[in-house]
Design a protein around this nucleic acid. Structure first.
Lengths: 128, 128
DNA sequence: TGACATCTGCGAATGAGTTCGTAATCTGAT
DNA sequence: ATCAGATTACGAACTCATTCGCAGATGTCA
């Protein structure tokens, strides 16, 4: 296989998020979703998605007149990739310091903290 | 104050890391350090650092012939900023899901997991 | 069928980030 | 004083991401 994940740009990542949440979608679908946040033209989104096809970030079903796009990479895979990247670039490669910074500086509420702790316990048990 | 942190580019971040680790440094110092990883020319680093002065990412002591550069933003502050950014762009703004992904997908060893758990416990106690 | 809307493909313009060549300036040693 | 080496400043070139205008093709509906 050896399919290393491909680094999506910011705009590409926004589109991928829509595809992950909605499943297979048309350009119009994605545009409608993205328009809630920023204001962009149809052809802008179109162009980005075309580029993403070439890069292999999405796959396209061209059988119908209106093409259907689908994410080609797992959301988890991409998230892990981006985290690893940030870890290397800004945390000297230390997962622990990244996680601790995330916990303490972002406003994770008590419920989230408890969730994280439970997750951590489970993971440690599994690994032991 | 209202000094929102400034988004450093990748190259700028690499330089900031050197300044955070070494403290005030010259262009040559930074170049020497960066050369361990990638291969870049003196003027390339120089140019980047000049731009960073203009942006306010670093401050420069010009009293001597050879200027001394220093990071103008705290490392923590920048790390938090970048984490928040990634959280919004790739984790739908959820700190918990980012943290759990980071814990499970990067190879944090048992020692790191224990460290995180201790940190988490302390934080929850503080907040309660 | 004809008018109209929608979709795709193409190409160009813009801007940010990066890299480096060149010139000017300064320092220190001989 | 002068020369070699190091440093700074300036600007050009290049890539990549982003945005959009325009043309051509296709579908819809009166």
């Amino acid at each position: 296989m050896s399919n290393a994940p491909i680094r999506p740009s910011d705009g590409e990542l926004a589109i991928l998020r829509v595809l992950w949440n909605r499943g297979p979608s048309t350009v119009r679908d994605v545009l409608t979703e993205l328009s809630k946040d920023r204001d962009m033209g149809y052809t802008t989104v179109m162009k980005l998605m075309q580029i993403m096809v070439v890069k292999g970030l999405v796959v396209r079903d061209e059988s119908a007149r209106t093409h259907i796009y689908q994410a080609a990479q797992e959301e988890e895979r991409t998230q892990s990739f981006l985290l690893k990247e940030l870890m290397d670039k800004a945390f000297d490669g230390s997962a622990a310091s990244l996680v601790m910074r995330a916990i303490s500086s972002t406003k994770a509420d008590e419920r989230e903290l408890a969730e994280i702790q439970a997750f951590l316990k489970r993971l440690r048990k599994e690994r032991s």
